[in-house]
Design a protein around this nucleic acid. Structure first.
Length: 588
DNA sequence: GCCGTTTTCGGCCCGACTGTTTTCAGTCG
């Protein structure tokens, strides 16, 4: 059972309690919805946690829901859930998948029209709306009847199912809108916020904050955006639009003197904000996007023009957006013990570069020469770089031929070193780990290298146990120092394989091997949540771009974002180290 | 139902916006 299925079930429990008796079950509803959200966003599989008896690791999942989930994974159903849902019409649930439908509205329709078939309920509601029967219902009207028809149509078109955007795509989209908004003379400052500012690996909606003393004019300008599909809502301080391509854009406005609290509010995450507000309540302070009110004098609003002042007023150190996920950052901020997260400017080199050197590789080659990549590295102020083309293909070459190719390449790299004294060049390779765990080229050839990255490029469908054995065997080779894109996932395309991380991390720590954070926006692998666990296990990491062209070397910042979201400091990231230290590490 | 440096009992974020309403309910983030 997948996380999203489990999340949906818990959410259905929340909806069921809402129908049965909202007042009575008020806090159960909140608890179930919270657990559902956490599981939907969790990067570990709940079914694995349940089997390994580790559900207590999930925040928001207490003893009761733990028991229910254990029962669910073991038997496929939960007696308690079935008992609760027995009195709730089944046809209600499909409607909840449609945005703008909540439990109350769905229940009203289902019960009033006596809709029983959960397979056809969406068509049934659509038919009733088309016949004009919904407008006649108490609490509904002509407008809401039209809204229902449109919501169903949009749901059917799959507009809501459009997959989440990669970070660069979302950034580009946001930049277009921001560029447009800058032409509005009433816009003072403007920033992308939400998950875009927190640099999540994928982005759902675009959130934008504007500081202005004329919110009405800013919002009027916003809803005239040329690529608008329709206005979802427009009020006095915020508006929401649907743009072509099915993306939602939310824009909020506050005057400059209160812009700090808007930045804080609109950056999220929701979990961070809820916790922050609960934390503040205990100090007698109530937070909102407008500022801070003291409970003893609710009329008085403290306003903040920047975020640092806002956090400071709560007795907290400013928290970097990347870690605002309510995973301990508020507690550490209070003690002023937040880690100093790694910065892009601290990166001293890129060790995963594919060039056009004729290595006759097993996989795709780079398009630019080694020299061009050296020039780009110099432009980026790097102290060193590493060439790591794919190994010469095993099937097309004898061991002797592979050796000869790499021998020539070594000579060529030596020449480059002669001509490029201002940067250190590390001779690497990206070597395949074959299904049996051996490396794709022979020891004599490997001995020509300073070290090699190793990675999986074939036969992904192995069990977790076998894949872990395979990786560990490959990584145990003396020359193998870095496991590249450790899970092989491609965002929105391929989930990748699973490994026994505890075992991998322990091995890396004891044998001085490193894991890569692959900065390519479609990989971002190792992902943020695993980065954090790796660091706690004292595993060292590299952030590499895996560039196949010079321009891609600019993508380093996406890898840095992942590292920051994983709470990495400079010391955790080996390619922030000076060359001499790094060189020693490679030989260790 | 969850959670804990004021608590194992007694709390539980805060507001925007819309539509159907003359003061609020529902949904969303």
């Amino acid at each position: 059972m997948t996380n999203s299925e489990i999340s949906k079930l818990l959410s259905q429990m929340a909806s069921s309690y809402t129908i049965i008796n909202e007042a009575k079950y008020h806090f159960q509803i909140i608890a179930y919805q919270k657990a559902a959200n956490i599981i939907a966003n969790s990067t570990t599989e709940v079914s694995d946690l349940a089997r390994e008896n580790k559900l207590q690791n999930l925040p928001g999942v207490g003893s009761s829901i733990q028991q229910y989930l254990t029962e669910l994974i073991a038997t496929g159903h939960v007696k308690h859930f079935e008992k609760v849902m027995k009195d709730v019409p089944k046809a209600l649930f499909p409607l909840l998948e449609i945005p703008s439908f909540g439990p109350k509205k769905a229940y009203n329709l289902v019960s009033h029209f006596n809709l029983k078939n959960d397979k056809t309920v969406i068509e049934d509601v659509q038919r009733l709306a088309e016949k004009g029967e919904i407008a006649a219902l108490d609490g509904f009207g002509e407008k809401s009847q039209q809204d229902i028809l449109r919501a169903i149509k949009e749901y059917r078109s799959g507009i809501n199912k459009t997959s989440r955007m990669t970070l660069p795509f979302a950034e580009e989209l946001a930049e277009k809108i921001i560029e447009y908004m800058r032409n509005c003379p009433d816009v003072d400052e403007i920033y992308p916020l939400g998950s875009l500012r927190r640099k999540k690996e994928t982005i759902g909606d675009i959130d934008i904050a504007v500081s202005s003393t004329k919110p009405d004019r800013v919002l009027l300008y916003f809803i005239k955006y040329p690529f608008i599909e329709r206005i979802i809502e427009k009020g006095d301080t915020s508006s929401s639009i649907l743009i072509s391509g099915g993306r939602h854009v939310d824009l909020m406005v506050q005057p400059p003197k209160a812009f700090g609290s808007l930045l804080q509010h609109f950056t999220g995450s929701k979990e961070h904000n809820v916790h922050l507000r609960e934390f503040s309540l205990k100090k007698g302070l109530s937070l909102s996007e407008y500022g801070i009110r003291e409970n003893i004098d609710p009329e008085k609003l403290m306003e903040f023009d920047n975020e640092e002042k806002f956090y400071k007023a709560l007795g907290l150190a400013w928290i970097p957006p990347e870690i605002r996920e309510d995973t301990g950052e508020i507690e550490l901020s209070e003690k002023d013990e937040l880690p100093s997260l790694v910065e892009l400017s601290e990166i001293k080199g890129d060790l995963h570069l594919h060039t056009s050197y004729p290595i006759e590789p097993s996989h795709d080659m780079g398009v630019d020469s080694m020299q061009k990549m050296i020039d780009k590295a110099l432009e980026l102020n790097y102290e060193y770089l590493g060439f790591s083309e794919h190994n010469p293909s095993k099937s097309k070459h004898s061991n002797k031929q592979v050796h000869e190719i790499l021998f020539q390449r070594s000579k060529f790299i030596d020449q480059l070193r002669m001509h490029n004294k201002s940067i250190r060049i590390i001779s690497l390779l990206e070597t395949d780990i074959l299904p049996d765990g051996s490396l794709a080229i022979a020891d004599e050839a490997l001995s020509l290298l300073d070290a090699t990255l190793v990675s999986i490029h074939s036969v992904f469908n192995m069990t977790k146990l076998d894949m872990t054995k395979r990786v560990l065997k490959g990584l145990s080779h003396k020359k193998a120092k870095i496991l590249s894109h450790p899970t092989g996932r491609l965002i929105n395309e391929r989930v990748g394989y699973d490994l026994d991380w505890k075992e991998i991390f322990a091995f890396c720590k004891s044998e001085n091997k490193a894991l890569e954070i692959n900065a390519s926006p479609s990989r971002l692998d190792l992902k943020d949540s695993l980065v954090r666990i790796a660091i706690e296990a004292e595993v060292r990491l590299f952030i590499n771009t895996d560039s196949h062209a010079v321009d891609q070397m600019n993508l380093m910042r996406y890898g840095v974002s992942v590292a920051r979201r994983g709470w990495a400091t400079k010391d955790d990231i080996l390619n922030t180290w000076e060359y001499n230290n790094l060189s020693r590490w490679f030989k260790s």
